[in-house]
């Protein structure tokens, strides 16, 4: 009876424990921020996995959409709920921030989803490496546009998001960022799982495996591509929004190709097309980055080297294209996470 709710129960307990620990300040700010970046990375890698793994396209500009989400939700949050030297007094009562915060993040996601059209529309005619270029170009275009928007700080960046968080904490003192990162991370994985397991979403895999057959066997490939790109970039936008509020500061330079490369690495490390692989590799990657932090600049020599070595031994990533439930079939009994 309870068995099919096991995953839900585990998640609620986990979320509760983390929130409690954060509330009582039993874990330090550093560990907490690592945990939150883990969530952001999970959203990034699972959403990119939808395009690169499930649909078989090669998007290398995922950070661009993250950037759109980060800026839109930061600007919206600051505009609505805090006094700012650019936007002046808040448009709404800062007390309302506590209710509207998730909507602000989602608004960033929606904006990023529309930015995703920049890639989705050319994808009707273009595939493979040519589309890869378009994604790179999209990434540069987005960053470059923001760098040239001096109203919102240009390349110097934009800040003020901490005030929104403070406004929320003034009403009810809870570690809000931790809670929302957790909620959005779970929601992302859940949404992606629902999408890819529906007959509708299986059209994505059909496009990957044989696009011509898909179109002729009644799959509206252009529609599926549009929805998939928009979903993927929208989720990246949500990750961006959370990222911006965690740090309290955004600048376009932090969403460059290197950030996109990180997302790519997580997807391929996990195994293309494997959702649980993407989650696992995001966790591993975040931990690895933190463990190697003392190495400073050598970190970026060691990590790629590790990855290259790993790929020589396991050229299909950690999970291949399998899911956890394929490797441990007994998990299926608990697997009602749909």
């Amino acid at each position: 009876m309870f068995r099919k709710y096991t995953v839900q129960l585990i998640l609620v307990t986990l979320g509760g424990i983390i929130t409690y620990l954060a509330y009582e300040e039993l874990i330090g700010l550093y560990t907490l921020s690592v945990l939150m970046f883990m969530g952001v990375n999970i959203i990034m890698s699972t959403s990119l996995n939808l395009v690169n793994g499930n649909m078989g396209e090669f998007s290398c500009g995922h950070a661009g959409f993250m950037c759109v989400g980060a800026y839109v939700s930061s600007l919206l949050g600051v505009l609505l709920f805090s006094k700012d030297k650019i936007f002046g007094p808040p448009l709404l009562n800062p007390d309302l921030a506590i209710y509207f915060f998730p909507l602000v993040i989602i608004a960033g996601g929606i904006a990023a989803a529309f930015a995703g059209l920049l890639v989705a529309l050319p994808s009707y005619k273009t595939r493979g490496d040519y589309l890869a270029i378009i994604t790179i170009a999209a990434n540069y275009i987005i960053i470059s546009s923001i760098e040239n928007l001096n109203v919102i700080g240009g390349s110097r960046g934009f800040m003020g998001m901490k005030k929104v968080i403070n406004a929320m904490e003034d009403i009810i003192y809870l570690p809000w960022m931790v809670i929302w990162v957790f909620v959005f991370t779970v929601a992302t994985v859940w949404a992606l799982r629902r999408y890819t397991s529906s007959t509708f979403g299986k059209g994505v895999a059909a496009i990957c495996q044989d696009e011509v057959a898909a179109e002729i066997m009644s799959v509206n490939t252009n529609k599926i591509k549009t929805i998939t790109f928009m979903l993927s970039s929208g989720l990246a936008g949500i990750a961006g929004g959370l990222f911006a509020y965690i740090i309290g500061y955004v600048n376009p330079g932090s969403f460059n190709i290197l950030k996109s490369t990180e997302a790519l690495v997580m997807v391929y490390l996990g195994g293309m097309g494997s959702l649980s692989g993407a989650v696992l590799s995001a966790i591993l990657f975040t931990v690895l980055l933190e463990l190697l932090r003392p190495l400073q600049i050598i970190k970026w020599v060691v990590i790629p080297l590790l990855l290259i070595v790993l790929m020589q031994f396991r050229p299909e990533g950690i999970m291949g294209n399998r899911e956890l439930s394929d490797i441990f079939p007994r998990l299926k009994r608990f697997y009602k996470f749909k």
Binding site: T199, K202, A205, A213, A214, M217, S218, N321
Partner: peptide
């Protein structure tokens, strides 16, 4: 031209996209 990484059942299911 079957979808080779999809189960036989899923091959039939995806073909119902039109309906």
């Amino acid at each position: 031209r079957l979808w080779n990484q999809m189960s036989v059942l899923d091959n039939i299911r995806v073909a119902q996209h039109g309906s």
